[in-house]
């Protein structure tokens, strides 16, 4: 008997008040401002897009070389190159507003005040479904990761932001800490709607012939399949430690990878570096999750979230 539409599994998930048509988002910094992937992906098939991190003023980014491939991964030190708030609203939002999926803005600043201005301005415009607060970029000197490695600073930042925006707030966490659950608990206590993790792991590569670092920034963020086991472990730990939804990120390259994160407790996932390898991978993952649910006799993706069996 042919499978009819009603039998397709329900893929919808909620992140606080934010309803996603499926649990697959694209990770900030790997999907541009959406338009870059329009030729490859029907964007409306995605659960959502998290756009490249936005700062108050445009940032030129770091000196090249900015990326280097490593075993099953890559290091990057882009340095948060972005068009800045004004141009983002004027030039990028018109396309994003009509792209057919939920759009989340990733924001970053050097001070609490900068984050607050960004959150306020972005909350005033149409078309954004939420904010992802980046407190975890390892590639800039100021701000960023400074907030992400100190629970008290993280708490104060998110508490301040909570008072300035009605949009769902997702806090993107750094793995470069001793105990990620401490930061997760702090931002949950401060009133955020969800946490997303992990950002890149700080790493390094050296050219032994020139004896120079391969990145101009010397160190950079490691991403890709190499970091997946670390990310999965952290997602599992954080999902147990907080009551708010967790969004899993880190080396997800296939539906199987995504399902591992869902089983570990992630309510949604983000696809990052894999977008570079296969520009269509995000929608392939959506289809693969649906197929897995059908094969497992699950009518609803929410049934498998956190369903890890530990005997």
């Amino acid at each position: 008997m042919a499978i009819i539409d009603e039998q397709l599994p329900d893929l919808q998930v909620n992140i606080g008040n934010l309803l996603l048509k499926n649990p697959v988002l694209t990770a900030s910094g790997t999907f541009g401002y959406g338009r870059e992937y329009q030729a490859y992906v029907n964007l409306s098939n995605l659960g959502g897009i998290v756009v490249k991190g936005i700062s108050l003023e445009p940032r030129p980014g770091n000196l090249p070389p900015r990326i280097v491939e490593t075993a099953c991964g890559m290091l990057n030190a882009i340095g948060l190159e972005n068009v800045g708030l004004k141009r983002f609203i004027a030039e990028k939002m018109p396309f994003l507003r009509d792209c057919g999926t939920q759009v989340l803005a990733n924001i970053l600043g050097d001070s609490v005040e900068e984050y607050c201005i960004l959150a306020e301005r972005l909350s005033e415009i149409d078309g954004l479904a939420g904010l992802e607060v980046n407190i975890s970029c390892p590639n800039v000197k100021m701000g960023g990761v400074a907030f992400g490695t100190n629970p008290q600073m993280a708490y104060e930042l998110i508490a301040a932001l909570r008072g300035r925006s009605h949009l769902p707030l997702i806090v993107k966490l750094s793995p470069n800490v001793t105990d990620i659950t401490k930061i997760a608990q702090a931002v949950a206590d401060a009133g955020c709607d969800a946490v997303s993790l992990i950002n890149t792991l700080l790493g390094m590569a050296i050219d032994i012939r020139s004896r120079r670092p391969r990145l101009a920034n010397i160190v950079g963020g490691l991403s890709g399949p190499a970091i997946k086991p670390v990310a999965l472990r952290m997602v599992w730990q954080v999902a147990k430690a907080v009551k708010i939804p967790v969004i899993g990120i880190g080396g997800i390259s296939s539906a199987e990878d995504a399902i591992e994160f869902l089983l570990a407790g992630a309510t949604a996932i983000q696809v990052g570096t894999a977008n570079f390898v296969n520009p269509q991978v995000s929608v392939e993952i959506v289809a693969g999750i649906s197929q897995y649910l059908q094969e497992s006799g699950e009518a609803n993706v929410r049934n498998i979230i956190g369903s890890l069996v530990i005997s």
């Binding site: 910094g29 870059e36 992937y37 990326i67 890559m74 882009i78 190159e81 570079f276 520009p279």
Partner: peptide, 9 residues
């Protein structure tokens, strides 16, 4: 990395 303007590498 990407060739399509996303990674900015």
């Amino acid at each position: 990395a990407c060739g399509i303007g996303a990674c900015l590498g």
